[in-house]
């Protein structure tokens, strides 16, 4: 089983967002970067599939800055075999450009599965995986929370509003992982040692400007001060009136 896992280096979710002086991007000073948590599910799934198959290779692919090598090493420490960094100073806002670079890299390499996290926790773009599938004309199931593979076919479950879809697909395929798919392993000490010596190829990424242009990055509006409606059960009627007439949520 040969599996590619496309990952992204993202700011830690606890990052305090400070806007850079260009007014369009995150001020990265003092920001800690991590492997996108949804990608951890994808890496874990790839490792389990390889272990289950008894043979194969797990290749980590990313588009990012030189610092993303560290993120690839994290995935290698979990157990992946090698890494490829498509290096760029700036990831375009248009996910299709990233998808094109990744598709060109994984195309014709004989992957049985190409895995992604369902989205990155920085830009919430939620699109690169299915775009790669479309560009390569591969079957794709997104946001899967359960997966079974056997006999060149797979069955996945994905959560939809008020239920779960059961989806069948043939291999090779592109899948994007949701929380619940598995419990990602922690890198073991031996894995961390071994990761230092695993191959990591760095090559320049070919990226266009794309069709999305950032105009501004701004802090969200502050909530307006609330008010105390009243005290005790007597305030319930007034609360309901306000929810109905002022807030219009009932």
């Amino acid at each position: 089983m040969k599996i590619a896992v496309c990952i992204k280096r993202v700011p830690d979710s606890e990052t305090r967002v400070k806007i850079a002086s260009d007014g369009k991007s995150l001020d990265e000073a003092g920001v800690k970067f991590i492997l996108n948590p949804y990608d951890e599910f994808a890496v874990e799934e790839a490792l389990r599939r390889k272990e289950q198959a008894g043979a194969g290779e797990v290749v980590i692919v990313t588009v990012g800055s030189a610092a993303a090598q560290e993120t690839i090493r994290t995935a290698l420490a979990m157990g992946a075999d090698r890494g490829i960094l498509l290096q760029t100073d700036k990831i375009p806002a248009d996910g299709l450009e990233v998808a094109r670079a990744l598709a060109a890299e994984v195309k014709d390499s004989g992957y049985d599965l190409i895995l992604f996290g369902k989205m990155a926790i920085d830009d919430y773009n939620h699109q690169v995986g299915p775009m790669v599938a479309e560009l390569l004309d591969l079957p794709c199931v997104t946001a899967i929370a359960h997966l079974e593979i056997g006999g060149g076919k797979g069955t996945a479950e994905r959560e939809i509003e008020g239920g779960v879809e059961l989806v069948e697909f043939p291999l090779p395929a592109v899948l994007t992982a949701d929380k619940g798919l598995n419990e990602p392993r922690y890198p073991a000490l031996k894995g961390i040692m071994a990761a230092k010596k695993k191959p990591l190829q760095v090559k320049p990424a070919t990226l266009g400007a794309g069709g999305l242009e950032v105009l501004a990055l701004t802090p969200p509006p502050q909530r307006k001060e609330g008010r105390v409606v009243g005290e005790g059960p007597a305030a319930v009627l007034e609360l309901l009136r306000l929810l109905r007439e002022e807030a219009k949520v009932l």
Binding site: N182, R185, K190
Partner: peptide, 21 residues
């Protein structure tokens, strides 16, 4: 010896349990 990782509140190993090294 390092601390174990991936134990539940009662000290039972979870799916991602990593034994002490």
């Amino acid at each position: 010896r390092t601390a174990a990782t991936g134990l539940d509140r009662a000290g039972r190993p979870l799916a991602n349990y990593l034994a002490p090294n």
